[in-house]
Design a protein around this nucleic acid. Structure first.
Ligand SMILES: [Mn+2]
Ligand SMILES: [Mn+2]
Ligand SMILES: [Zn+2]
Ligand SMILES: [Zn+2]
Lengths: 145, 145
DNA sequence: ATACTAGTTAGGAATAATTCTCATTTAATA
DNA sequence: TATTAAATGAGAATTATTCCTAACTAGTAT
């Protein structure tokens, strides 16, 4: 995503293009790993040492409302954010808390067809996300190493 | 589940049978609705006005460790607990935050077969939970009314 | 029935993530 | 350049959850 695409994306949603928002976007796109607000802070502070943590929460919330990112909650007591907006599911590793994206169009099609046929009474389905819980056979590196 | 079954279940897991644990269990079994720690507190305080909130968290954590209940993942910033231990999925209503259990053996079988065939590289699947997000055509009562 | 003890609880303090407040600053627009 | 609605920084406040520890109790042994 180029700089001008990012600018267009933000202003297209009625958001002012601020250095803080650009920094948070860059952090989210670089880290990818479903970062916490704190991980985003660590990242952006390298270039913007006094970007306030409250501002980060503000921006993340705004991005959620505008459909730019999503929240992910595990059984931990902090929120994680996901900038990958293509349809995907999640692998939750029970041992190292790593959450990996899982893409599977065949699966999506199968589920789509299944629920087209089998309606859930009184409920309109908007999307279906799988939480696939288990463990890696050999653990992924947690961060960048 | 009778009183003596509950007693056996707790002591079978090496847990002492205390009035506090019985009260929390009763709350969970009565509320069903994936209550928060606070909802459990509200319930148990009617009969045990000075059951400490710290004790409730203690008990809930112990129950999780012993496999009596589970934590469920939402995008809210508080935990919810689930005493239904039969395999099921969840319907998340976007409008009223109600989370309903969804049972579907046919679906489970389909997923089982799918992932038996199609392995995920480097990952052992332990369980799969669907987050089915959408809205009720006419909303469910939020509490008991 | 009584004593013992490891496990449990009450109550309050502490912590950590997140939200709020508001004075100041800034991006967009004219 | 002037205007203004929106955004930010700094720190206080809030909220869910955890921690601490003295007092208590369920289960077991005597
Ligand atoms: Mn993701
Ligand atoms: Mn459930
Ligand atoms: Zn792992
Ligand atoms: Zn609803």
């Amino acid at each position: 995503m180029s700089y001008s695409e990012i600018v267009d994306m933000l202003s297209g949603k009625g958001l002012k293009v601020t250095p803080q928002r650009l920094a948070v976007l860059e952090a989210l796109m670089t880290i990818k790993d479903h970062p916490t607000a704190d991980a985003v802070k660590e990242y952006v502070r390298r270039s913007n040492p006094n970007l306030a943590i409250g501002t980060i929460y503000n921006i993340l919330e705004t991005f959620c409302e505008k459909g730019i990112i999503k929240k992910i909650k595990t059984d931990k007591d902090f929120m994680q954010y996901d900038i990958e907006m293509h349809k995907h599911h999640h692998l939750y590793c029970e041992q190292c808390d790593y959450i990996e994206n899982y893409y599977d169009e065949e699966l999506d099609k199968m589920l789509q067809e299944y629920f087209d046929k089998k309606q859930i009474p009184n409920f309109n389905i908007k999307e279906i996300n799988l939480q696939i819980i288990g463990n890696y056979k050999n653990h992924k590196p947690t961060k960048n190493s």
